[in-house]
Design a protein around this nucleic acid. Sequence first.
DNA 1: GCCAACGTTGGC
DNA 2: GCCAACGTTGGC
Length: 152
Amino acid sequence: MRYWLMKSEPDEASIDHLANAPHRTLPWTGVRNYQARNFMRDLMQVGDGVLFYHSSCPEPGIAGIAAVSSTAYPDPTQFDRKSPYFDAKSSQETPRWVLVDVVFKKKIPLIPLAALREHDELKDMRVLAKGNRLSITPVTEAEWRFITKRLA
DNA sequence: GCCAACGTTGGC
DNA sequence: GCCAACGTTGGC
């Protein structure tokens, strides 16, 4: 059992999109970074906790709680020529990119990025590290507890 | 729109 | 294997 923070641009997939999706579940399409892919492929398990983070928007921050609901499987958008996530160098035989399904748990009052930075308990969060651009970052159990019990 | 930081590409 | 150039991320 692990914990993760996963970034999504709310214009594309917000916590409300997730809540209203069939089975309250969305495939986490579009990860095109090897480190983030490897987290999904090698470490994620069904039931892992997910902090759903809105990025590249007027109010960046944690917008909800979700969970990993599948193990990794090939991201179909890599094979779709019309998709912005198409990858000509990938193939059906040896897919380069994978994804997991994510299921909605609950929406919370937004915890803004600035609020996360105010807490000493969270000062080592990967997502807060200078220059971090990873769209998926590990969250420690202590960080998860603090956020879900004290801030959410 | 700006810009710092990072990842990827490709020439050598 | 090095590294410059380029593209992307993401907060502000």
